[in-house]
């Protein structure tokens, strides 16, 4: 029984060579479908990466009360400087802030007359870059609360635009992306399935003859399934290889001002899902084709 199982498996693989052209064309078709599906997944992955990356970048503008002791403020700058995921902190004394303002306004910004009665408070600009793995629900609000709770801090401003954009993307992901991936899967399944079934038409005679001599359904199907599995696996891996080649070539095509986007390859789980999905479709269509 086991010997027969291995013999039939070997026959299924060897039979690919009996109709080499038909199977080569099937292989190419499967590889092309894998490549196209891979491009869609690669695009989604990179858009997601860009948004998740910008989602983690937030700047907070912190203002202290005018009567706060400068020594306390300096110690708080240090405390903020040691917070997790902080990228940069710039502290501004009232004088620094006045000079910055003057620089920004250019010739019109002569604030020499305000030197003695400077109304600007101590402030700081803290930039954070939180990686996607640490972006739990409400992470930006958590930092905001922490900064606001510091003694002497009067107010903290931050732009929630990127956060909102990323939150919006997350909602879109849930509502649209999965249906899109589902549709893509359906298209891939139909194309690969029909291609496999067409390739098995060349073996209808064999199926008929095996049935005539008394072969049981599994004896007929198993070599066809192993052949289909080999074609699906090889084709999808070839498609993935071509995708990697394309990604290597196009990796820095968008890495120019103002985009600075490096195109990354898909993570391993995407690759496994693509290869596994296409191989599974090939197996199922080989099974169905003999019915």
């Amino acid at each position: 029984m086991i010997g027969q199982f291995f013999r039939l498996t070997g026959r299924g693989l060897g039979d690919i060579l009996i109709h080499p052209w038909a199977h080569l064309l099937t292989l190419v078709a499967v590889a092309m479908v894998s490549l196209l599906a891979g491009f869609v997944l690669l695009g989604l992955h990179n858009v997601n990466m860009q948004l998740m990356k910008s989602r983690g970048e937030v700047q907070f503008q912190i203002y202290w009360k005018t009567d706060t002791d400068p020594k306390i403020i300096e110690s708080q700058w240090e405390a903020v400087g040691s917070m997790d995921h902080l990228v940069d902190i710039k502290g501004f004394t009232p004088q620094d802030a006045l000079l910055e303002l003057a620089d920004t306004l250019g010739e019109a910004g002569d604030f020499g007359w305000l030197k003695e009665t400077n109304p600007l408070p101590f402030s700081a600009l803290a930039s954070f870059a939180v990686p996607p793995s640490s972006q739990q629900e409400g992470w930006a609000a958590g930092i905001l609360t922490k900064l606001k709770s510091m003694p002497g801090v009067e107010k903290v401003n931050y732009s929630p635009l990127q956060e909102d954009l990323a939150h919006g993307w997350k909602l879109i992901s849930k509502a649209v992306i999965w249906p899109v991936i589902g549709f893509l899967g359906l298209v891939v399944a139909m194309v690969v399935g029909n291609t496999m079934r067409l390739s098995l038409l060349t073996r209808n005679d064999e199926i008929e003859i095996l049935a005539l001599v008394g072969a049981k359904p599994w004896f007929i199907r198993w070599p066809l399934i192993t052949g289909g599995m080999a074609l699906g696996l090889t084709g999808s891996m070839a498609g993935l290889g071509l995708l990697k080649l394309a990604q290597n070539t196009l990796a820095d095509i968008l890495n120019i001002p103002p985009l600075f986007i490096h195109i990354n390859f898909m993570p391993m789980e995407y690759c496994i899902a693509l290869v596994g999905g296409i191989t599974l479709v090939a197996i199922v269509s080989s099974w169905v084709a003999v019915r």
């Binding site: 029984m1 027969q4 013999r7 003859i209 095996l210 001599v213 008394g214 072969a215 049981k216 004896f219």
Partner: peptide, 8 residues
Amino acid sequence: AMALEVRG
């Protein structure tokens, strides 16, 4: 041989 292989 096919006719005998199907019989195992």
